[in-house]
């Protein structure tokens, strides 16, 4: 039976949309970029190599907690032994669960991939192809409500990656007071991750959005107003931080494999 814009009671119009603009461009770009990132991140997670070049470590492999991690890359010890049938499992496969979970449940990315990957809807006022729709009311999409747990985990990762960026102020002999291109790359990556996390809707809610009486909590109210300003740009932070993390990984990989030289400014 016809439903949606083709329901019996609605105006009899045969087109799924009458939009004349190029509404498909934005979801197509989103699909292309996110799909490319997924492919790249998957390949890199399985590669299990070229993720450390003193003093730089790839954000995909930090914190490296496995006994299989290359020497010098495990700043927090090696309490885990990730092996399966005698073969080492890439630590990135465990690490990436948290940042990817944070992005997968992010309110901005939800908009992006529901439109671009699931066509639900592909664009505003463009009829979606699905016959039924239950939204985020049942499994698996009800798990989107776990966003705040990934947000908390993401904060822990931000601290670790910021620490990695600080350690990058050393040279290869572990002497402090040096800055390389890699230092700037890791610093920018961790900074953008902080901006992405702090502008998050869950952060805004936790800081003060959940309150009924702002006047009784003036400090939280002021923080909420600041976070709300950042929240306006959450979409931009989401994309820039994604590119920044991916580029940081590419940079460390190239330096680690010897393809690029990590040039020191001083």
């Amino acid at each position: 039976m016809a439903t949606g814009v083709f329901s019996a009671s609605r105006a009899k119009i045969k087109e799924r949309t009458l939009r004349t603009d190029r509404w498909w461009v934005q979801p197509a770009i989103t699909f292309g970029v996110l799909f490319s990132f997924i492919i790249y991140a998957t390949l890199r997670a399985f590669e299990n190599a070229n993720y450390f070049a003193e003093p730089l470590i790839s954000p995909f492999y930090s914190p490296c907690l496995s006994t299989e991690c290359v020497p010098g890359s495990s700043l927090m010890g090696q309490p885990f032994n990730f092996t399966l049938f005698g073969s080492a499992i890439s630590p990135a496969l465990f690490i990436l669960i948290f940042p990817l979970g944070f992005r997968m449940t992010c309110y901005y990315y939800r908009k992006a991939y529901y439109r671009a990957f699931w066509f639900s809807p592909p664009a505003c006022a463009v009829a979606e192809p699905h016959e039924k729709y239950t939204g985020e009311t049942r499994a698996p999409l009800i798990l989107q409500n776990a966003h705040r747990w990934f947000f908390y985990a993401g904060l822990v990762f931000n601290v670790i990656l910021t620490y990695d960026a600080i350690l990058a102020f050393r040279n290869q002999e572990k002497q402090w007071g040096h800055v390389s291109v890699g230092t700037l790359v890791l610093l920018f990556s961790s900074f953008m991750l902080w901006m992405y996390s702090l502008s998050c809707h869950t952060c805004r809610h936790t800081i003060g959005g959940r309150l009924k009486h702002f006047s009784k909590h003036p400090i939280r109210y002021r923080l909420w107003t600041r976070i709300s300003i950042l929240n306006h740009s959450h979409q931009q932070f989401a994309w820039v931080s994604l590119f920044a993390v991916a580029f940081a990984d590419i940079y460390v990989r190239q330096v680690s494999s010897g393809a690029w030289t990590n040039f020191y400014l001083f």
Partner: peptide, 15 residues
């Protein structure tokens, strides 16, 4: 009221 059915695609804000 079906809040869980909303999947945040923001078309309401756009229009």
């Amino acid at each position: 009221h079906g809040l869980g059915m909303c999947n945040i695609t923001k078309c309401c804000t756009e229009v």
